[in-house]
């Protein structure tokens, strides 16, 4: 399947930006997204090709605007919901709950 991920030979992306002394992860959420993806992969409900295909189903414009671990996160959520581990509704509810707790914590 072609798409925004199929980048070989495309023009216009400019110079390659390298970061001196680059850390393995750039934020705590990247560490957690990476580890959750590997841990859930170990259940065997999907293989590497299925993970990749899930990430490639991100809308092309969004794919080009977002970072590597945002692609991973998108693919992870898609597989978790498609395979019935979680529902979108419970994920959205939990996000609201965590946001509310965080806000309540900062006000107290």
């Amino acid at each position: 399947m072609n798409g925004a991920h199929d980048l070989g030979g495309m023009h216009g992306f400019g110079p390659i930006n390298r970061e001196p002394d680059e850390p393995v992860f750039h934020a705590e959420w990247e560490r957690r997204a990476f580890a959750i993806t590997l841990a859930m992969g170990a259940h065997g409900a999907w293989n590497l090709d299925m993970s990749r295909y899930a990430r490639e189903r991100m809308e092309p414009g969004e794919y080009l605007r977002t970072s590597y671990y945002e692609h991973w996160l998108f693919g992870l959520q898609l597989l978790l919901t498609e395979k019935g581990f979680l529902s979108e509704a419970e994920i959205e509810q939990r996000m609201r709950d965590i946001a509310d707790e965080t806000n309540a914590g900062s006000e107290s």
Binding site: L73, L86, I91, R94, I98
Partner: peptide, 8 residues
């Protein structure tokens, strides 16, 4: 990410 980890 926090929501997924907490649910899983």
């Amino acid at each position: 990410v926090k929501a997924l980890e907490s649910l899983l």
